[in-house]
Nucleic acid binder design. Structure first.
Lengths: 198, 198
DNA sequence: TTAACATACGGAGCACTGCTCCGTTTTGTC
DNA sequence: GACAAAACGGAGCAGTGCTCCGTATGTTAA
């Protein structure tokens, strides 16, 4: 009963299937492009990657900020859900943690772009940020705990602290080949590892 | 003796007069445009304002960052020198302080643009920032002290603190008509004023 | 003074970008 | 099926960064 208009409300015909599909495609494409080319990547590039026209992007996300925010939310969700999945799929919690952190670093590109895109409008940003913490800290903690439990890493590091550290390692690199945050994050993770005998 | 080549050094023929003149003109024009249109203003606009061709700008300042840094240094100097001048030129230290703060706010536009333009290369930025503090805090302090001395404002506020406060009021306004930093700075200054008996 | 050269200037032109607009295609409904 | 609404695609426009080279100007040596 899509056309049920019980009151003075607008009928609100449900979205067309292709529109929904394209929205998803765009989110994924934008995320990938943000990672490889930064949040200032040309819209054309995102459109090309998604295999859609530019008009489609502008219809779904009128401004760049809209797109960035949408990707941000999408990524937070994906990242949060990936935690348990990775843990279940891998025999080693440490490996799972590594994979998760990799996802997290990808995500930070968008996050920093967002912070920049939201110099004003700080209200919405606060809300988004707390959403980010609520969802992600527990996910990270679960992986961390599991790795400790399995004896792969030393205890004593909090998820929040680790995430913040990673976040800070990832600021301010814009095409500078001399600074690769991922290398440093890798180092950080290695530092977490419990020294293994033989 | 401009062509004296005492050793293996390059003769280093002195710069042409028009080149020097244009450099000054450009600095002034860029400063004005940065205030009215932000540091991302089109190069064309700056060139037009200075009455020179774009080639001239790019010859003097190969990248936008170069130009911004040069304007920054220039402004720090001008601001520092303006302190004593304004003080001497006006009967009221408070009026002088007001005028100085106005200059300072103009300058902050460039400063913030600079901070953004220097996400990487943080070494040079640090040096610039300490230069900024060394030059400007004393200038501000002098005005502040004079105004206290004259009984126009209440004592107890440090120059550094005031400047920092003003600086913070000036972040994150990019064409948002709802937020005008100057209004707030004016309020701050008014708050500094000693309540005067009619 | 003037010739000759190094230096600096100007702006047309190219490449690339954001964003709009509208003819075409797809989808859902009757 | 037929039809309208919704969504799509991408050509095209306007604006921008940056380069390049013919021209103008300042400077030096004779």
């Amino acid at each position: 009963m899509p056309t049920a208009s019980t009151s003075g409300e607008v009928p609100a015909r449900s979205k067309r299937a292709d529109a929904v599909r394209n929205q998803q495609t765009l989110l994924a494409a934008a995320a990938a492009v943000f990672v490889s080319s930064g949040v200032d990547a040309p819209i054309r590039e995102i459109a090309a990657r998604a295999g859609v026209g530019m008009g489609t992007i502008y219809r779904h996300f009128p401004t760049r900020a809209d797109l960035v925010v949408a990707v941000y939310r999408h990524q937070v969700e994906a990242c949060a859900e990936a935690g348990p999945t990775l843990l279940a799929g891998s025999g080693s919690p440490l490996v799972a943690l590594r994979q998760w952190v990799d996802l997290f670093v990808d995500f930070l590109v968008t996050k920093h772009g967002l912070a920049h895109a939201m110099q004003s409008d700080s209200g919405g940003f606060e809300a988004l940020h707390s959403y980010f913490l609520d969802r992600l800290v527990p996910a990270c903690a679960q992986l961390l705990d599991a790795a400790v439990e399995a004896g792969e890493i030393s205890p004593g590091t909090e998820a929040y602290e680790l995430m913040r550290g990673i976040g800070n390692l990832c600021v301010g690199r814009d095409g500078d080949p001399r600074y690769d945050p991922r290398r440093l994050v890798e180092l950080l993770l290695r530092g977490l590892q419990r020294p293994q005998s033989s």
